[in-house]
């Protein structure tokens, strides 16, 4: 069953960065369909995201990408994540539009693409861009390409 049936992509659907690029921190764009949309291209200050035309899927040049996170909140599909490897940990930055908003240092529940619990994660950074928060969590390295959401327990 593909993502058109399940709503969940497999990592085989993505062109992933290599280990070196991941250590630097790069944007993972989970946008696979030809939809007429391009704010991410315009938001990138390094020209790292490109599209041939408005309906093309965005391609990330992982060498140019600095992991600056500017594309995360501008994406109307909330489909961009920044992943950075640090030793045995992964830092995942994701868009968050729910309440309550966690604070730096909080422990939250990490969820995968189906909303299944993958364990706890620590909040490393909280940024606010408009009404969207960009939450950076620290989780296990093996969950770098698995965790894509959080649940905040009060």
């Amino acid at each position: 069953m593909g993502y058109k049936e399940s709503g969940v992509i497999s990592i085989n659907d993505l062109k992933l960065p290599n280990e070196e690029q991941l250590k630097k921190g790069v944007a993972i764009v989970e946008c696979l369909e030809n939809i007429p949309c391009n704010p991410c291209v315009e938001a990138c200050p390094f020209g790292a995201i490109t599209m041939r035309d408005l309906n093309d899927t965005p391609k990330v040049n992982y060498d140019k990408c600095t992991g600056c996170k500017r594309c995360i909140a501008i994406c109307p599909g909330l489909a961009i994540f920044v992943v950075k490897l640090e030793g045995e940990d992964a830092l995942i930055s994701l868009p968050y539009e729910f309440l309550p908003v966690p604070k730096k240092g909080d422990v939250v529940i990490a969820l995968d693409r189906e909303g299944k619990v993958r364990g706890n994660a620590k909040v490393e950074e909280v940024r606010k861009v408009g009404k969207t928060h960009i939450i950076t969590i620290r989780t296990k390295k093996e969950d770098a390409m698995v965790v894509r959401n959080i649940r905040v327990v009060k």
Binding site: G7, V8, L111, G115
Partner: peptide, 15 residues
């Protein structure tokens, strides 16, 4: 699924 995958992904990752 009828709509954009990115919209489906948003609700799927909430379970």
């Amino acid at each position: 699924i009828g709509g954009y995958h990115v919209h489906a992904a948003k609700v799927r990752r909430c379970g």
